[in-house]
Design a protein around this nucleic acid. Structure first.
Lengths: 198, 198
DNA sequence: GGTTCTATTGACATTTTTGTCGGTAACTCT
DNA sequence: AGAGTTACCGACAAAAATGTCAATAGAACC
């Protein structure tokens, strides 16, 4: 009975990186930044930790790449929301998508993580996304850029807060977890409507 | 020339813990959760790492104690805002204080940290604070508890978001860092006024 | 002064985490 | 089939981080 060396899976470099990053993301969302250990990431991806190093150089490399990928994902998701529908529906839609993006995809935890680790400097993607929204759907509705920017800042911050602590906050005061999100959405909607109408 | 053993500082247990926790808080705010290492905490406090262990048992002990202390601080700060002044001023005041608490004292980073590490279960303090606000100033203004709770959920979430990413978000779109905070404050104020008036 | 208590510490031990290196195996191309 | 490329892995090395322990030294009290 000789010991069979396990059959290797050989991926393309891109696929390998992708696979590893998925594992890393899972870990980040489940256990937080502390849980982002080399061996665990490797285990979750079904590879040896040496392989992770081969593709990313170091654990910091993994973190950076992960942040990059998640930001890209988040921005794309939000931008996908701008469709030239009727204003009301779109208003609602933007709110929905924004909250979704920050909650379900772990966007809030990502942002928090970035902020906590001080990686917030080089977020060109985000800047571009904001610019796009301001010059796109907002301007189209006749909102002046100054005000539009402010609205976006508030909306994103709110989405961030809700996505991060909304659920546990609601549970903390004995309400169903979606309560915060719903309340915030209503609040945001009426506020936006008021701000645009003026 | 014999080597003098450095003179020891002997503190009371409480003072020693306090001293260490201050160092830990500084580190948490400056470098994030990753930077909370035993030796660094000790160094910052001017003691040996063995001393830290003597007082807190383990690094987790430090984290738990730190979280506890910071939460206590945050809640106290917010609750200090409920004074029976005139409604308008108080409205403004509560917003101010809420945002202050979450921004300056690192409350947002604390909350984010707690959330990321999944320590959100046993936050009795927060629950009690919310209950106090609901049955206190809110009820006094005739806001029904259901609505009051929702408002608080939204306000806290917003404060959280602003405190965490407000500054860098504003800078990201080329505005002065306080922009987000000011916009959010205005937004919150008008929203609150509207909600209460109805 | 002497005694007691314990906060403090340096030195050591253990565990965890990260990184290195030579060889192996999967895939492509000829 | 043979050769070249390189993703992959096991084993080892190094570093970092946490934890243990016996001895020391402040401070209070007698």
């Amino acid at each position: 009975m000789s010991i069979e060396p396990a059959r290797r899976v050989r991926r393309s470099p891109e696929a390998a990186r992708e696979n590893i990053l998925q594992s890393a993301e899972r870990l980040l969302l489940e256990r937080g930044p502390q849980g982002l250990k080399l061996v665990e990431v490797a285990q979750g991806a079904g590879v040896s930790h040496a392989t992770v190093l081969h593709h990313f150089g170091s654990i910091d490399g993994v973190q950076t790449a992960l942040a990059e990928a998640m930001i890209r994902q988040l921005v794309a998701r939000v931008l996908a929301a701008e469709r030239p529908d009727d204003p009301e529906a779109q208003l609602e839609g933007v709110g929905q998508v924004l909250f979704d993006a920050f909650e379900s995809a772990g966007g809030a935890r990502l942002a928090a993580w970035l902020e906590l680790t001080g990686e917030t400097r080089r977020l060109t993607l985000v800047r571009e996304a904001v610019a796009e929204v301001i010059s796109g759907p907002m301007a189209q509705k006749g909102v002046d850029p100054e005000r539009a920017t402010n609205l976006i800042l508030v909306a994103v911050s709110l989405a961030m807060g809700v996505g991060l602590i909304g659920r546990s906050l609601a549970e903390l005061v004995g309400r169903p977890p979606e309560t915060t999100r719903e309340a915030a959405l209503a609040f945001l909607k009426s506020g936006l409507a008021a701000a645009i109408r003026v």
